[in-house]
Write a protein that binds this DNA or RNA. Structure first.
Lengths: 349, 349
DNA sequence: CTGTTAGCGCATTCAC
DNA sequence: GTGAATGCGCTAACAG
């Protein structure tokens, strides 16, 4: 009973005693086929376990019904959630999602694009390792299919869906100053070349400078050890900071760990505010205040944008071009928990 | 400069003034082509930005160089990590990974298999919503490509890579009894039909029964509220439990939250041990003891198994069949932290 | 070393 | 309503 190979349309046609055209019609909606024939063909298809060969369809010039997703790391919760959201949109559009990881390496990224292209995906979602890269922009420019950037925009080249990192960091810093903290240190994490980190740093800097406070920036921390020693050093200074603004999840968590280990009361001695929410942020003692990103929305909106273009097909015209390079900035939300000095209500935030 | 469409092999051949075979040879390694010709063709390929059309290759009967991954949810950290590991293996084998999500719905799963099959993926990795399902097993049996199950085995049908949930839960429970706890409650989480949960429950039950202790099972909790009330009720009993064994991450976390909120000292009044590790388990106060699964290894081993078969090609014979249905059980590790009553050393575990 | 040719499975004219 | 023929881009015989 085990079919060694896939039955073809011809097999079905032959078995059902009809022409290939008829079978083709059946699997494409069954229009212009007599009910009797349709039923018979359907039955043969079922019996043989026939599945149309996508490769043949693609070769005929049809859409591949696949889109590529190019992200740094599939296991990263942020991108995994993006992927899940994008997947949902893809399925709603009858398409499959091919996921690839770059580990923020440009060569890997270019190679992934190449492979995806040779598989003739209908469109691409990409979080570029380095949006500035000339090589990347070259490739992107000669690509004939729609591409949407996520998390890290490629301005003037392709449409991008990102979070308003600058405003979010600016507002977060202002929230800290509103608490009365005058010396606010910022731990960026090592990847200072990343768009998101740069924007957040910019927002922080602008806010402290506007308030006339010092810009205390540490761009070198990365693992737990470095965070702990950075905090130790900071606290040993003549005028130690009163608040800590961490720009990414791992740094926030390391900072919290270090603060605990060093027995530094939070927020009374040193307040903490992190960029990006995480599941246990509300459970830790004290609970951690964070800037929350609409992660699902990034993936969803980006994918929707992609399919709009895919299905639109209007390729020329200024309007189309302006939409082609549009930049969508999603709003963030400041979740006020205890670590920044706020005292949330009764709810479990 | 923008190529509207993809150049074909014929385009290249024509442009370079050679036959299509020659171009084909060039893109397939360049053997049996004179250096001069090779250089010229290569240059034309570069200039035209030519990419071989995978669809045509597939149609010629070649491997699609894609494998499908069918999991409940891409955003789930467990499966996201599996995906990342499987992706690495796929890339090492020059293949792409197509990821689909079932949300543990059988119909969705079957549909995903269908679509994947029609795309002619070379192989499949699947975490079945319900490995018992007749419909699933039927489909699996008539599939001509290699399939490997992950996390949830499909015995006697396909090869499977899982964690030894039974032994792990058994050992974890024994660890609790070794601490002297006699009344150990187990919170399974709602999905009692899931293979993993059933196995873990079985391990727990066997261990407490062997020790002559009561089996205190709560299979109904799910969200925070239900966990909190379950714990409240448990503690209100005449003989409240001395330890809590939670079978999945979300329940462990909810339990920890609830214990905190109810001001129940851990582990002195109620010890806690969870199945599955999570990033902050070591940071919480007290740190949470857990059964740690080799998540990456599941994805990696499963993918390696898949490609072994893909490349092997020996399809007949008893040996092949026994390997076909083999069951790989990976070992877990019990991470002893504070919540179970252990006092770990100085290291940050 | 190199070119010619014949399909892979399907959708699509164009006839009947 | 239905079917025969054509070609999508590529590889694999087979000649030269």
């Amino acid at each position: 009973m085990k079919k060694i190979s896939h039955p073809t349309l011809d097999d079905v046609a032959h078995e059902a005693g009809v022409g290939t055209t008829t079978v083709s019609r059946v699997i494409n909606g069954g229009d212009r086929v007599s009910p009797k024939t349709l039923a018979r063909v359907l039955q043969v298809i079922e019996r043989l376990g026939y599945r149309p060969n996508q490769a043949a369809r693609i070769l005929k010039g049809h859409r591949a019904r696949t889109v590529g997703l190019v992200i740094p790391n599939i296991a990263d919760p942020f991108f995994a959630s993006c992927a899940e959201a994008a997947y949902a949109v893809a399925r709603a559009n009858d398409s499959l999602l091919i996921v690839t990881a770059t580990h923020n390496d440009l060569d890997t990224e270019l190679e992934n694009l190449d492979v995806l292209l040779s598989h003739r995906t209908d469109g691409l979602l990409i979080a570029p390792a380095n949006p500035q890269s000339k090589a990347l922009r070259d490739v992107l420019n000669r690509i004939a299919i729609p591409v949407v950037a996520i998390d890290r925009p490629v301005p003037n080249a392709i449409a991008s869906v990102v979070v308003d990192n600058y405003s979010a960091a600016h507002a977060a810093t202002q929230h800290l100053t509103a608490h009365g903290y005058k010396r606010i240190a910022c731990l960026t994490g090592g990847e200072t070349m990343l768009y998101t980190i740069r924007e957040r740093t910019r927002g922080y800097r602008r806010a402290v400078e506007a308030a006339g406070f010092p810009c205390i920036l540490d761009t070198s921390v990365n693992d737990y050890r470095s965070v702990e020693s950075a905090i130790t050093n900071l606290l040993a200074e003549k005028h130690p900071p009163q608040a800590l603004f961490t720009l990414k999840n791992s740094i926030t968590i390391h900072a919290f760990e270090a603060l605990q280990k060093l027995n530094v009361p939070v927020p009374s001695v040193l307040a903490l505010l992190g960029f990006d929410d995480f599941e246990l942020a509300s459970t830790l003692r004290p609970s951690i205040s964070v800037v929350q990103q609409p992660i699902d929305e990034i993936g969803r909106v980006a994918a929707e944008l992609l399919f709009n273009r895919l299905l639109d097909g209007s390729h020329a015209g200024n309007a189309a071009h302006s939409r082609r390079t549009q930049l969508v900035k999603l709003k963030t939300r400041l979740i006020e928990r205890r670590s920044c000095g706020c005292v949330p209500g009764t709810g479990r935030t």
